[in-house]
Nucleic acid binder design. Structure first.
Length: 289
DNA sequence: AGTTGCACCTGGCTGC
DNA sequence: TGCAGCCAGGTGCAAC
C-alpha cells in the first residue's frame, strides 16, 4: 500500500479521530517491528494528547504534548484501522477483519475509538523522537524534496539529477532525491511523461544545469499522478484498505504498473516488464523514450 | 563516493 | 489437494 498517496490517505483518516484526543492506553504486543520499539514506548505515549499529525516523505509524524513526536513508517504491509467503541459482533458487511495475529499496536483513545496498527511483514517501525531533534534526525534530514510542495518543479529535478549516474527509475526511487515516490508511482509518472525508465537521469539536465523540457514534463507528471491518487483515496493492492475499511480506487487507473503484455492506451504498443535494480519496472516501449 | 544487491518477513498466487 | 517457488507497496547496509 504505502507510497506517498497511501500514507497521505492514512494521515487524513487518522487525523480525523486523533487530533486533540488523549491516548488513554497503548498496547504494544511485540518487542519489535523492523526495529525494536523505543524504551518504555507505551508508557511514554500513555496520557499524551496528539496536537498534530503530519507527513514527511512516507513518514507519519504525530506531535505529542510531551515535546516528543511519534514517527511511524508503514513499510511494505503496514496499515491502520479505526474501531469505534462498540466492537463486539460482526463487522459491517464489506469491511475487513484483518487477521489479529498481525495487530502489533493498539492505541485506545479518550474518545472510545481504537486505532490498530497491523503489519504482517513487519517492515514498518515506530520511533519516539524529541521535537527539538526531529528535523536533525537522519531519517528526516536526508529526505529529498516533497513532490507536492510549491518548490517542486523541473528545475529541482534537474538539480537533484545532475551528476547522477543512474537511470530515471533508480533516481526517482531514491528517497534522498525526491521523497515519497515508490515503485508504482515512479512507473506511472514516467509513463505519463513519456520517458523511458531506462534513460539516464542526467539526460534531463542541460549543460548549464537548467532543466530540459523533459524534466519539466516529468515534474508535472509526478505531481499530477500523486494528486489524482490522493483524490482517489490511494491504491488498494492485495488486502490493503483505507482507515475505515474501505478501498482506495487508484489501482484502477494504473496505466502500466502490473499491466505487462497489455497494450498501451496511448500508442497501442505492448507494455513491458523488466527488472531494474531488483525491482519490477513496467513501461511502454513504444511511447516512453 | 556512488551504485547495486541482498536481507529483513509473511502471505498470496501459480504451476507442477 | 499439496507444496515448492516466486513475487510483493520499502529501505538500510554490505559489497563492489
Amino acid at each position: 500500500m504505502p507510497e506517498l498517496p497511501e500514507v497521505e490517505t492514512v494521515r487524513r483518516g487518522l487525523e480525523a479521530v486523533l487530533l486533540g484526543a488523549q491516548l488513554r492506553r497503548v498496547d504494544q504486543r511485540r518487542p519489535d517491528l523492523r526495529f525494536p520499539f523505543p524504551e518504555r514506548f507505551a508508557e511514554r505515549l500513555t496520557g499524551r494528547i496528539v496536537g498534530a499529525l503530519r507527513r514527511r516523505a512516507k513518514y507519519l509524524i504525530a506531535d505529542l504534548d510531551s515535546a516528543e513526536s511519534l514517527v511511524m513508517h508503514l513499510g511494505m504491509s503496514g496499515s491502520f484501522r479505526i474501531e469505534q467503541g462498540l466492537s463486539t459482533g460482526p463487522p459491517p458487511s464489506g469491511m475487513s477483519t484483518k487477521d489479529p495475529a498481525h495487530d502489533h499496536v493498539v492505541f485506545e483513545l479518550s474518545t472510545g475509538a481504537r486505532i490498530i496498527y497491523n503489519d504482517p511483514r513487519r517492515f514498518g517501525f515506530m520511533l519516539l523522537i524529541s521535537r527539538q531533534a526531529l528535523a536533525a534526525h537522519p531519517l528526516l534530514r536526508s529526505a529529498g524534496v516533497e513532490p507536492l510542495s510549491d518548490e517542486f518543479d523541473g528545475a529541482i529535478l534537474a538539480k537533484v539529477f545532475a551528476g547522477k549516474r543512474t537511470s530515471l527509475k533508480a533516481a526517482l526511487l531514491d528517497q534522498k532525491l525526491v521523497a515519497g515516490l515508490g515503485n508504482i508511482y515512479v512507473c506511472e509518472a514516467l509513463y505519463r511523461a513519456g520517458l523511458s525508465p531506462l534513460r539516464l537521469s542526467t539526460t534531463l539536465v542541460r549543460r548549464n544545469g537548467a532543466p530540459s523540457t523533459r524534466a519539466m514534463r516529468l515534474a508535472h507528471a509526478i505531481r499530477e499522478v500523486l494528486e489524482e491518487a490522493i483524490a482517489a483515496g490511494g491504491s488498494s493492492l492485495r488486502d490493503h484498505r483505507t482507515i475505515n475499511g474501505g478501498l482506495g480506487y487508484f489501482q484502477h487507473n494504473f496505466r502500466v504498473y502490473g499491466r505487462a503484455d497489455n497494450s498501451c492506451a496511448r500508442c497501442g504498443g505492448t507494455i513491458k516488464r523488466v527488472t531494474q535494480s531488483g525491482r519490477a519496472t513496467f513501461y511502454c516501449g513504444g511511447c516512453q523514450r
